[in-house]
Design a protein around this nucleic acid. Sequence first.
DNA 1: TAGTGCATGTAATGCGTTACATGATTTC
DNA 2: GAAATCATGTAACGCATTACATGCACTA
Lengths: 176, 176
Amino acid sequence: MNAVTPVVLGMLSLGPRSGYDIKRVVDHSTRFFWAASYGQIYPELRRLEQEGLIEGEDAPNGGRSRRVYELTKSGRDALRDWLLSSRFNVELRDESLLQLFFADSLAREEALRLLEDRKTAHEQLLEVLHEIENMPGGKDPDFVDLVLRWGIEFNEWGAEWCERHLQRLRGETKAA
Amino acid sequence: MNAVTPVVLGMLSLGPRSGYDIKRVVDHSTRFFWAASYGQIYPELRRLEQEGLIEGEDAPNGGRSRRVYELTKSGRDALRDWLLSSRFNVELRDESLLQLFFADSLAREEALRLLEDRKTAHEQLLEVLHEIENMPGGKDPDFVDLVLRWGIEFNEWGAEWCERHLQRLRGETKAA
DNA sequence: TAGTGCATGTAATGCGTTACATGATTTC
DNA sequence: GAAATCATGTAACGCATTACATGCACTA
């Protein structure tokens, strides 16, 4: 069990898919909080098949080779085990936050500009997520939708947070 | 310029420090959004000294060897350049979010328990951050304090978000 | 005197991305 | 007929963590 395992099993729980399919779906959904590359996915598919958690079947499109996988009973069990095991492993790498941390060495207006830039970045991400939200296709399952809402509401909160502290810090500067 | 460079320069901008010092401060502050290990810090210190961005001086404590570094003029310039260059590189790896994403395959109560667990995790992180907030010592500089507030307010938001959607989803289940 | 903290350092390991190679099919 | 997309796959690279080695000093 490594970092790609749950994404692969999870994506297959939504229906049979090829490695290529999995990558494509990941890039439109979980990549914001859980990325996966071909270099991980393809070896993992073979490993999982060997261990009997998934089953592959050749399903070529004409002369274009293609292998589609689906979960086996043990695969479904493994996914369920992972889902029910408490994990709150969060890793964050936020360069803008690091800049703010060291911003005291800048002039006040320069430092505040960093906060403005951060706000803009939140707003831009919000646009990307709204596009995903408005993509054609049937309604997403409840929890898929919930996670998309997290992304949207987090970025709304983030932009708001920047604005709030921008005003506070500008006020303090004037008062002083 | 790699991932440790800005932390090292930034930490030295707060005053002369040894590699060990830098690591200790990182572990109490930026590690939540920007970690650094000895394996990065020590080689980086030598590299930065060679390039003239920092200057080291032996400052042993008795027979215990110790080398303290400080920023040079070019080091201060390099830090300033990095601070003023727009960067919004954020990487997030959130396993709990991934679980929620695939939670539709669980029974409704099981899935909601994942949300409850997430809420608890936010609350626990909040406690850790409050301890840091209440640590003795002088007031932090404005922007150091700002980043700590981000951590606190983000986790408050996160817990609240879980609660809000917990209630929404429980309501929908009953209504259906 | 044993344990903890100060202090520096590196080698091994693990992990994920990048970049490339190959080739078929669809679209403009 | 060129470009984009489908589709699979791997080798090389870079990066960060882990784990260990070394040794001094302080404290219970």
